[in-house]
Design a protein around this nucleic acid. Structure first.
Lengths: 343, 343
DNA sequence: TCAACTAATTGAATCGTTTCAATAGAACAA
DNA sequence: TTGTTCTATTGAAACGATTCAATTAGTTGA
């Protein structure tokens, strides 16, 4: 037996029921001031009666553009990105746009498939926190007419807009703080270095050590991911090594890693934080303050990144002639808590 | 001066360049096996050369349905919902769907505007964690032909599918655990009671107290939101009261509240957890384990909720004749950590 | 009463796909 | 040669909105 599934009413059906032409219905929807009030009334009644809902695909097809933006993030379950998404979504709502979210899971092919999807959907533009070097992709998209703004990564002004946080400065701030606490054997925990953010934080950290007059050293403990689990593994390895080999401070490339390290130190071993080893993270996610030892961190304005990116994208979409590509760099901020407070 | 903005190439342009008809190009795109291999080659070359990207609006208009699903959550920056979203998104990708995310921020009008938007977009279906009673909305949408699955809330089978967690059981488990630890003056922290989840957890908690043979009591401390901030305020108020009035255990309606309470107890006051007051939360977000005092909690399978909801929605969309509405209820799980471990 | 104007309404054309009946062409048999 | 079966390709029609030139109705002034 055939599926009954009655078709949705179209603007035609509304026109017929209201006894007007389809052009008039369209005007009621889009330019009500051009239509006589009682005609508006008749049409409204018909719309109600039929449960008519405008078909956005048809509208978009005619208009050629859409009020939807695409957002591709590395990992939505990471609080930094969920804040960013939240900021983006709020800014979009402001300008009457909506946001389609794609989660690339650090995976280039998923990233690519979201970009392709968004392009087919003819989104107004795309905000992306790229997995990897992304200039070619951005250039290609832009060449075909899709606007792209890059967040959390700097790209060349010739290519497009980008909003980022100065990760080198952040790395420097973190290590300068550790040095100021009298720490000298510093370990940077993070990876992979293909993440520009991680490389920059390490670079900042290294430069701070180099610039200091002390005999401080820094070594890099690589991780495969920026997750709590990865941090826990590193923490366990450190705790298991002989005490003389311990660093006296750890700078983790993000808070999730730092939290993992803390967990290992507290549960599996008897490492005292910050007395034996101080720990500082990066991102200042909402839980840094509530961590087992309240965690010092470098605060990034995640929601602001998201909303600024959307604002710039909307500007580019709506006034392409006025728009000039810009690179905005926010400065991060040191947040000191117990995990690094000198004894 | 006019904006140059060259139009995107259409299937027509591709056909012209490749020297074939537009129907053939369409076949290359959708049924390549029907087309001679060297024709496919010619067309592929033309597509490449022009940078042709299929216009999904046109395709959707013709097809009448889309491969996009809508997801409306209460608060994406809450880890429970970001896990849920992640699960939904993964399940959708599996079935070649993509997910548009809407954030209702506990706000009925934002919820409504997302539902309207999704309906105009003719999404394949909607997964929603409703702010409030939602039966009428769901019935209305369904009546107009949009499939809806409700998550994190039970609705009647006559109305549609829903996936939820048994919050009454969860509330009961939490309080039974507290009672088993010898606690008797229990406070339930949470609100507003308009959230069915909160009301259910309280109901479960109350029933556990009632069923116990002990002289235990429970009182309800209302909050306006389920956030860390709200929890901190409650914690401060309790710590500031005279010690004889303190509860000896707190059951918070979610982990964020519990974390806030812990923060207040640790930083602003000298309340010992769990010796003075035990604390248990709800959701078992990733940070419960890493909290300042590792937090006992009731675990909800958030990602599983999301993926199951999407699976059911896809089933309903793709095989409406086979589909039967179902109500799936997952059982929560008690996770015991230091914050409630008897001295 | 007619011209001149404004306000309201009309409906054909358009956007870019997919679909499908019709056609062309090739291969083979009789 | 003619007929039969294939396979490959064609192109008109349809989806449902928006747009805009054309039309109709209504008002005013002379």
């Amino acid at each position: 037996m055939p599926i009954p599934k009655k078709p949705r009413p179209s603007i035609q059906d509304v026109a017929r029921l209201a006894g007007v032409s389809l052009g008039t219905v369209s005007n009621v929807l889009n330019n009500p001031e051009r239509v006589k009030p009682d005609t508006v009334g008749k049409v409204a009644k018909a719309i109600d009666q039929l449960g008519f809902v405008r078909n956005d695909a048809a509208r978009q097809l005619k208009a050629g553009r859409s009020k939807t933006l695409g957002l591709v993030v590395l990992d939505i379950s990471n609080p930094f990105f969920s804040s960013l998404a939240r900021g983006a979504e709020d800014a979009a709502a402001q300008g009457n746009y909506s946001v389609i979210l794609g989660n690339s899971s650090d995976d280039l092919s998923r990233e690519a498939s979201y970009m392709a999807l968004f392009e087919e959907q003819r989104v107004g533009g795309i905000v992306i926190s790229p997995v990897d070097g992304v200039s070619e992709t951005v250039t290609a998209l832009r060449g075909r007419g899709t606007n792209v703004v890059v967040v959390d990564r700097h790209i060349d002004a010739a290519i497009g807009c980008s909003i980022s946080v100065d990760d080198i400065a952040g790395g420097r701030m973190a290590v300068e703080h550790l040095l100021a606490q009298g720490k000298t054997k510093i370990a940077f925990v993070g990876g992979p270095l293909e993440f520009q953010q991680v490389a920059d934080r390490l670079a900042g950290a290294t430069s701070a050590v180099a610039a200091s007059s002390s005999k401080a050293t820094i070594k890099h403990i690589k991780t495969k991911a920026l997750s709590v689990i990865a941090g826990r593994e590193v923490g366990e390895a450190i705790a298991a090594s002989t005490k003389s080999e311990w660093p006296d401070a750890i700078f983790a490339a993000n808070d999730l890693l730092a939290v993992g390290v803390l967990q290992a130190f507290m549960f599996k071993a008897q490492v005292r934080v910050p007395q034996d080893i101080a720990v500082i993270g990066y991102d200042d996610i909402a839980f840094a303050e509530a961590a087992i030892v309240p965690l010092s961190s470098i605060r990034q304005p995640a929601a602001l990144l998201g909303s600024t990116a959307v604002d710039m994208l909307v500007e580019e979409v709506e006034s392409p002639s006025v728009h000039k590509h810009r690179q905005i760099t926010f400065q991060p901020e040191l947040v000191v808590r117990e995990s690094t407070l000198g004894v």
